[in-house]
Amino acid sequence: MGLRSFVALPVNKGGLVTRLVVDEIPETNNDRITANLAYGLDNKQAFFIAVPYRIADAKGDRLGDVGLLYRNLVWQNIDSGIKSSRFGILLGGVAPTDNDRDPKASAGVVYTYVNDKHEFDTDALWQQGIDDAKNALRYDLSYQYRLFPKEYPEWGLSTLVNAVVELAGRGVEGNTVVQQFTGGLQWVVTPRWVLEGGVTQDLNGPNDTNYIFSTRFHF
């Protein structure tokens, strides 16, 4: 799983994952925290919730719209010991937290390929505006390389460190899709606790440099 997208997250049956993401955007003073929650219904189905909250700018609404997604892994290849690939569909919507905004319906796809030290994730999501809400598109392509350990221990798990590079795009109807490049690190402190951090550079936007930090817990 990359740094900017949550939908490629592996979630086990009955597993609950919480994640807090801090996006620091120095140039626009528009920092925000996003709370993510994922729950695994069974080995193929999972639910994702995202609640953004603006922390830096006191003007206007602080609470963002709530994103809800259902993921169903419709195809997977898990026959190999060190390789796996999974493809899923995403369905859901965006529920406004203010009467002035309208909801959106979401549909997309997610694909994950893992081969020992290498992991590749991609997802794309279309958000269809309802009433006055504008359509939106987002995508993420991420690659992770396991830096440490070089080899897994015989039994059990050690701490892990992954390098992550990610290309993401965010666009709203009528505006240019902003392409962003992110580089960072994931530190799997324990199999239940992960710390992540990275730097994001807009490739075609106002050249903002953003910072992203997150922590997640697997229950």
Binding site: P10, G81, S84, D116, H218
Partner: peptide, 13 residues
Amino acid sequence: LSGLTCSFCVYGL
């Protein structure tokens, strides 16, 4: 086992 490719998978299983 097969398809077990991450530490979260190990923890969950």
